[in-house]
Design a binder for these strands. Structure first.
Lengths: 351, 351
DNA sequence: CGTTAGCACACTATAGAGATGAGTGCTAAA
DNA sequence: TTTAGCACTCATCTCTATAGTGTGCTAACG
């Protein structure tokens, strides 16, 4: 089993001890000593032997000791090695999955679904749940309707693939007849139906610039109206739903108030976190950022476990949980994985 | 100056010392001793004399000492006496008020205004800002429009006095002609325009029960539709906007993680806090709940300073700040007061 | 009578000493 | 390769002494 670049001098037995050590540390939160590890491993070896192994693991940078005479704790590299090669995922029970499926599936539109998924994540993991609102690039355009209101106001209704019905009242300089509006909405639905909102927006823009003069004036106006709605959509830079933030206050590992304040502030600020989540859109499964791996200072003592979820148009967003680095990966990873799958199903079954 | 029921044995001089002591304690956070108080008071008295006074104040239940040989700290009753009779409010500068006015006035509808006011509160006080969304009982009904959509769906648009435009798509069993809908909306606007949403709802309900048989069937249906919209309004039990929650993590007085978690959880749960805020609707000025006075356990170490704000229809909601009991009342009270006035102005100037 | 000085007392906070215990690294032997 | 033994390091706990802060009480003073 030639694993990675750090496995020099770390043979299979040492890896096993690393696994046992980390699992013990995840349970206890206390540095693990050689005597404890010897007992825990089940193999009939003396503490002295274990000490040699631990020495190797330390040299490889996988574990470290807080001070001379404490046990050892995993380093970031140690956790990385663990989640990459050593985890024994503990899959959810059928009944748990079903219960979750029901809990999630009740919601109506994209936003409500995301909120439910987020709540489910934080409930199950007792950490903070995080679900991106489906990105505009992945929401498909289904249908548009223009409705004349009193005066020169026009109501634009946008139906999208995630079940969301956005409506916006727009002030128009020009007046349209009922039939003109019908004509316009048929045109737009026929031409852009099935496209995602982002390419629709781009398409409209391009079309309007290139063919402005040759087109029916009403059509041009209609496209401008549609463009207006797509442009000022408030979630243009993305958004996410957070649940169970306060769960993080229970962890002794995260009890430093200043750190925790930074973390909470970063949740409120959203921008950086969205940037981080964007990175996970490409990966096609669970992805994990341990401690400083996220390269985002407020997350230094945390681990972020993410998974992308899909809709008809492909990957629509990312969800995940945030918790202390010392979390139960065996349990958390399957939860995130399953939640992503269930949310995908819920979104797809809309049509 | 016969003040209250607790002023037995607490003469004017003692009150002055109480004021000085509390102001000192608010600055320092340390128990105030007799020597310090003697120096701080400006009066040329020896610590021994002060000790006698402090002894009186302690007997009156206004101050207490954490242990035999620390100074004294205010009790809840002490704070209460202070805010009721001793505060020297420090009014905001003209320029500050103007800056704030601009900051708040940009918002469009009720919800956005509330959010801005909340942000202003937390920015200025460095504590948590809290603004109730205007209550339905105080939002006036301006106008309703029914718009036929494809199929049997009808879009109902509700324009209210706080500038909010709510719209909801409703599935109707019956089909209506365009003229029927126009007739219906004229009827509703004429009959209920200017009423608040809550009495409109009640009115509709009563009307429908008493005159069901004698009325035009279309009208009855229209009223049912309107009733539907008013009923499932999601903020039927109220809502509020919270800002600067994390500011509370900076206070040493609130550093107990378990307490703080409870506090944050209570913010997320909302229900109880709304209940508390409801109580403040009646008072016509700033109201203060110190520590256990709020009778809501998560607020035991906090003070809530509130003020009601108005719209055309009278008192519309309540705003305020939450912070540690040891807060700078001289500064905070005027801020809350002014913010409420500014928000009222912003809401009223809508029409 | 209000005010003051003086004194004994109570309590906290801090630091140092010593004991304890956990765990290591190293060495030599099996 | 594994193991036992031993010296060593370091954190933690307890006990003690000490300094500092502030009080309550009493007696004296104007």
């Amino acid at each position: 089993m030639a694993n990675t670049s750090v496995d020099y001098a770390v043979n299979e037995r040492a890896q096993y001890f690393l696994k046992v050590l980390i699992e013990h540390y995840i349970r206890d939160g206390q540095p693990v000593g050689s005597r404890t590890l010897a007992r825990d491993s089940g193999m009939n070896l003396s503490p002295a032997t274990i000490r040699n192994v631990m020495s190797d693991l330390e040299e490889a940078g996988l574990i470290t000791s807080p001070h001379t005479s404490a046990g050892r704790v995993p380093t970031v590299s140690g956790y990385r090695f663990f989640v990459d090669f050593l985890v024994s995922l503990r899959p959810l029970k059928k009944s748990e999955v079903q219960q979750m499926q029901q809990q999630i599936a009740v919601g109506a539109d994209g936003k409500a679904l995301a909120a439910r998924a987020s709540a489910a994540l934080s409930d199950l993991t007792h950490m903070a749940g995080l679900v991106m609102i489906p990105r505009r690039e992945q929401i498909l355009f289904r249908q548009i309707e223009f409705v004349p209101l009193s005066g020169s106001r026009i109501l634009v209704i946008l139906v999208t693939s995630d079940g969301e019905v956005q409506n916006r009242v727009i002030e128009s300089a020009k007046r349209f007849s009922e039939s003109q509006l019908t004509q316009a909405q048929n045109f737009l639905t026929a031409n852009y139906g099935g496209q995602d909102l982002e390419s629709m927006r781009a398409g409209l823009l391009k079309e309007m610039q290139s063919t402005r003069k040759q087109m029916d004036e009403v059509m041009t106006q209609a496209m401008e109206l549609a463009g207006l709605v797509l442009n000022d959509s408030d979630d243009s830079d993305g958004d996410f739903v957070l649940s169970g933030q306060t769960n993080l206050m229970g962890f002794h590992d995260l009890s430093d108030m200043t750190m925790l304040k930074h973390l909470f502030d970063s949740f409120a600020e959203k921008r950086q976190i969205l940037h981080l989540l964007d990175h996970c859109m490409d990966a096609d499964g669970v992805q994990i950022f341990i401690g400083e791996e996220s390269d985002y200072e407020p997350f230094d003592n945390c681990t972020l476990v993410t998974a992308p979820y899909e809709t008809d148009g492909g990957v629509a967003g990312v969800l995940g949980v945030v918790g202390p680095t010392r979390m139960d990966y065996n349990k958390v990873i399957p939860i995130v994985d399953v939640t992503a799958k269930l949310l995908s199903m819920a979104l797809k079954s809309k049509y």
